[in-house]
Design a protein around this nucleic acid. Sequence first.
DNA 1: ATCGCGTCAAGATCTATCGT
DNA 2: ACGATAGATCTTGACGCGAT
Length: 283
Amino acid sequence: METNQSELMRSYLANAQVSLLMASHTKVGRDWRDLDFLPEFNRFYFIREGEGWLKIKGKEYAPKPGQLFWLPAGVEQSYSTVSDDTFRKYWCHFTVTVGDIHLLQLLSAPHFIEVPDPEWLESRFRELIELMRSRELAAPLRIKGVLYDIISMYLDETVRQYGDGELQMAGPMNVSKMNTILEYIDAHLSETMTVETLSKLVHFHPNYFMHVFKTMLGDSPIHYINKKRMDKARQLLLTTDQPVSEIAGVLGLELYYFSRMFKKWTSMSPSEYRSQGRRTQNV
DNA sequence: ATCGCGTCAAGATCTATCGT
DNA sequence: ACGATAGATCTTGACGCGAT
């Protein structure tokens, strides 16, 4: 009955935007130190050598080579050296947002992972650093790609190393309310849902609900619902032989409207999409 | 001053129907 | 399946208000 935390994370991540502020590779000086710093951006530290001290949200860490730390935006943090054997690390500053709010901080527990494939990560960081300087047209796009890669690796490893209990989200609407909504949407895709019905589920005024929903997921409720519907439509078109009119029915849409909506989202009519998909599958 | 929530009204999008 | 249209519904931004 319960959609778990990671389901919510997935919906959330599907709408995430990343942006890189800087990336570099340095051996820090003996005076590397900052206390109770509250950054507007996230940081990755990929430790390669040395020792040092880190404090995130009151928790202290002694990062080791081979670990990747995520210092979240908007969370108080401190760091300093502890000896002459200072850190050599790859690092970057970046933001991850959905709608207006930061993907603030999913991680309730350890803010680091053991990197499973250090060579891979090292080369991704080098790529980032190079791309930062690149004048190529598509460099900004590639940067996002690399960043998405690193973040994805980080999240997957967090779950692998600590379990998905550690992923939790902050925001104006709490997780359980959001879960209620997303569960309801999934279970009722085939019916007509109104913003009003949804907002009643969490006892919010429709307009306010709209606003909160959008800040959390980056899409308005109806837009989000339609996106879900189109996902399901695509799946049904490719994996079943149900006639288009029936699929429309399953999704709670009238045939004529379904066709138009589908075309708007995929630039193909449902039957076109099906025949094209079939053709590619049979290659 | 900021947060949590509500209200209103304009503009955008959706939906039902009819015609092709 | 597409096009046009009009009425219904949704979206959004601005503003208000009481509680931190």
